[in-house]
Amino acid sequence: MIEGKPAVLVVDDDGEMRSLLCDSLWREGYALHEAGDGEAAFQLVLSAVPNLILTEIRFDAGGVDYINRLRAIAPSCPIVVMTAFGDEQVRMKVLRAGATAYFSKPVHLAELRSCVRQLIREENRSGPQHVAATEVAR
């Protein structure tokens, strides 16, 4: 974790996707953390709440409950959920569970980046939280 940079936790069970997202967000100057499933992501957030969580929900220990759990331990952290060909119902459930934004894959990186940027800016204004990520879970 690099001090001063906003911390972003990227969670996806697909390594390529994670890699793409990290590549895309790296240029924005965020401190990036990665997790491969819900449990790893939960542990990471427990150790240090990031400035933003960008996560898929379809993986082990995922789903709408996973968002509920994240929201419980990080009440003010923006959570951006992406899911492949998600429909309205999923979107509603996810948002109701506490997600801040919802994207249906495939998502244009530009859109995603601007959304992340926007949310981090808002998050900073409302009071920065320091993310203490001690490890990056695979």
Partner: peptide, 18 residues
């Protein structure tokens, strides 16, 4: 298949845009 296709498609799209 949506999930199975959605993510690789996103990777393709994202990589292309990247």
């Amino acid at each position: 298949m949506a999930h199975e296709i959605g993510t690789p498609m996103n990777v393709i799209l994202g990589r292309a845009e990247y």
